[in-house]
Amino acid sequence: MMPRPAQRSRSFRKKPVNTPGGRQTIHYLKKGPCIARCAVCKRPLHGVPSGLPSEMRKLKKTSKRPDRPYGGNMCSACSRETVKSKNIARWEND
């Protein structure tokens, strides 16, 4: 099968699919966003799904980020260190 002219673009994700008739076809899917990463150490975040906005809208808020200060923005180790450093700075000023 030739792709439609509109699908002749590298902006589509190509997914090979085995049909029930034994034929292999290609499904053209929209590319989603990148994986969420920690703002400090740039490691991928756990518990933060990445999908098209239409897919993300269907999820609940609790399933989109960890319920923690800086959740969905920093990894657990980095958020813990920021909390510690803030605590130290607070009592130094007093």
Partner: peptide
Amino acid sequence: CVKTAGREAG
């Protein structure tokens, strides 16, 4: 103390 983990962190 200050809690550093979980939803009560900070």
